[in-house]
């Protein structure tokens, strides 16, 4: 089923504004994002991918003077899709982990993440010991992996295809508590109208979590992206994009 989905989504290729410099079609850099991780990447009303990741992608393309396409792909098909050349880079808020480094190369970080628990207001948890609790997370994320490593067999773990489904089941009460990345959840609490019922529990952790751009192993795109990253950090483009989404630096 996944391969079918993969083929389908890559067929729905979403093109957007092209940088002024024209290059050969062969030089087109196809960048994949998920489109379900607001405010980092999401699909707007007109069906185009938007968000922090997408803005960064366009800014980098401009510096690289490359012809870019941004496509969307379900989360757990991103790395498989990159490996079989459905696209050339993943800018989808992907954490740099050892497991992933065995499959792909990563550029330098373009922001830092961190995990944090989320639960209904007024409920107290001992976050060290969530025995018997139903904990939710998105499948194939750092949060899911952390839960598998620390709570497997003790708590009831539920993994979802998208973060939106995780929120839905937290609201419905099927989940006691959720583990997710702090920044998108910060945005969700602020913008979804659920901030009065839910709150973060405990401090954020895994702050060493660095988010990078994934490319195929040995691809020289990595160096091009790194150079462009340095450039947008220096000329203030990055800071402008950061300020558009968060009132504090997320680098």
């Amino acid at each position: 089923m996944n391969m079918k989905k993969l083929a389908l989504t890559s067929a729905v290729v979403l093109t957007a504004a092209v940088s002024s410099v024209s290059v050969n079609a062969a030089d087109t850099v196809r960048i994949a994002t998920e489109g379900a991780w607001a405010p980092f990447n999401y699909i707007d009303d007109s069906g185009k991918p938007q968000g922090f990741d997408v803005d960064i992608a366009w800014a980098l393309c401009e510096k690289m003077e490359a012809d870019c396409k941004v496509v969307t792909q379900d989360w757990d098909g991103l790395i498989p899709g990159l490996k079989v050349r459905k696209f050339d880079a993943i800018i989808a808020s992907m954490s740099i982990t050892e497991e992933r480094l065995r499959q792909v190369d990563f550029t330098n970080k373009y922001y830092s993440g961190g995990l944090r628990f989320l639960a209904p207001k007024g409920k107290e948890f001992n976050l060290e010991e969530l025995d018997g609790k139903v904990i939710g997370a998105q499948r194939a994320t750092l949060a899911a992996q952390y839960l598998e490593d620390n709570f497997m067999g003790k708590s009831d773990l539920k993994f979802y295809d998208t973060q939106d489904s995780v929120y839905l089941d937290l609201i419905s009460g099927r989940l006691d508590i959720v583990l997710s990345d702090e920044l998108p959840t910060y945005d969700w609490l602020k913008t979804s109208g659920n901030g009065d019922k839910f709150e973060f529990k405990g401090k954020s952790f895994k702050k060493e979590d660095e988010i990078g751009i994934a490319v195929r192993k040995g691809d020289d795109l990595k160096e091009k992206f790194n150079k462009a990253l340095d450039e947008i950090m220096e000329d203030g483009t990055y800071q402008k994009i950061n300020a558009k989404y968060f009132p504090f630096s997320i680098y």
Partner: peptide, 10 residues
């Protein structure tokens, strides 16, 4: 799918 999320061997 849960196994693949860890092993990346789809």
């Amino acid at each position: 799918r849960t196994i693949i999320a860890r092993t990346y061997t789809p």
